[in-house]
């Protein structure tokens, strides 16, 4: 009984997981590639939803609306990038500032805090109503997105962005315009997050100005879960992006399992935070423990 119910809820969890996994790809670009913690995503997630809903209700073609949502997300990333690189505001603070501003902007775009998007009235291509098709569409978008990103990060510009994240000082010393690269990375990342927000709004049938609250934690969780599970097998960049999306799916499958088992959803955020904190902390302690092993050898050398 329990098991069959859990199996039956899997398609929904997978669809939801892929949508958040795409958001996590955006987080991957800033957190892993650029080595910048960008908190703009909480705002750009809702921004994508707001822009899509307003466009669709206004009669704009659904695919064009997705593109407009992407562009809006890029602008949000651009603002964070400019605040960070041109005004010298630390990246975390720049992200928080943009996120805060986006709350007002989203309210103004929507004109209110919540707007329904009825799938009976508008030609949505993702919805909880038709989950199997939604999964296929989401997979298609994922493959397309990863292919484009794989190509982009293989170009000269893409390489210089990766170099900026790997070693900022060295990249600068080699004549790379690191500021420009950080802005491009933030722009791309937030554009992808906004697309994910636009997909989520369609899937759940409404958008809300607080929709993206805590999205950064879900995104990091997906990145980390993907890395832990597939990091050893998937070395290729495209496969790493894929493992991030898979991380999002695993996150939502676990969440659905936990809800099915009857755990109190009040504690969900606490557990998400604990998981992310643990997996972020483990590599640090691994290094620390490894260091300790070396020390006695050094001391004995000095004594001798």
């Amino acid at each position: 009984m329990f098991f069959s119910a859990f199996l039956a809820s899997l398609p929904g969890a997978v669809a939801n997981g892929i949508i958040w996994g795409i958001m996590a790809v955006g987080v991957y670009i800033t957190y892993k590639v650029l080595d910048v913690a960008d908190l703009t995503v909480d705002g750009s997630m809702s921004l994508g939803g707001s822009v899509l809903v307003v466009c669709v209700i206004g009669g704009v073609n659904i695919y064009l609306s997705m593109l407009i949502a992407f562009a809006a997300g890029c602008i949000a990333g651009l603002v964070t990038g400019v605040l960070h690189t041109k005004l010298g505001i630390p990246a975390i603070l720049a992200g928080i500032l943009t996120q805060l501003a986006l709350y007002s902007i989203n309210l103004n775009i929507l004109g209110k805090s919540n707007q329904a998007l009825n799938s009976d009235r508008y030609p949505l291509f993702i919805s909880m109503r038709f989950t199997p098709k939604t999964i296929l569409v989401c997979l298609g978008i994922t493959v397309f997105l990863i292919a484009v990103l794989y190509w982009f990060f293989g170009t000269e510009l893409g390489h210089s962005i990766r170099a900026t994240g790997c070693n900022h000082a060295m990249a600068k010393a080699n004549g790379i315009n690191t500021n420009r690269n950080i802005i491009i990375g933030l722009l791309l990342s937030n554009g992808i997050v906004a697309v994910s927000g636009a997909m989520l709004a369609q899937y759940q049938g409404f958008t809300e100005v607080n929709m993206g609250r805590g999205a950064i934690v879900t995104g990091l969780a997906a990145v980390i879960i993907g890395d832990v599970n597939f990091g050893k097998i998937f070395k290729n960049f495209a496969l790493r992006l894929l493992s991030t999306v898979a991380g999002g799916v695993i996150y939502y499958i676990v969440m659905t399992l936990v809800i099915n088992l009857g755990m109190n959803t009040d504690d969900m955020k606490l557990f998400s935070s604990i998981i992310v904190a643990l997996f972020l902390g483990i590599p640090y302690w691994k290094n620390k423990l490894a260091e300790k092993k070396v020390k006695p050898a050094k001391e004995s050398d000095e004594n001798a």
């Binding site: 859990f6 039956a8 929904g12 659905t256 959803t265 009040d266 969900m268």
Partner: peptide, 23 residues
């Protein structure tokens, strides 16, 4: 009766999805 408190909008989706699949 199974009472679930979402805490925020997107979690509602996961909760109702669970209810629906549990029929």
């Amino acid at each position: 009766i199974d009472t679930q408190i979402a805490g925020e909008a997107p979690v509602c989706t996961t909760i109702v999805n669970t209810f629906v699949s549990r029929k």
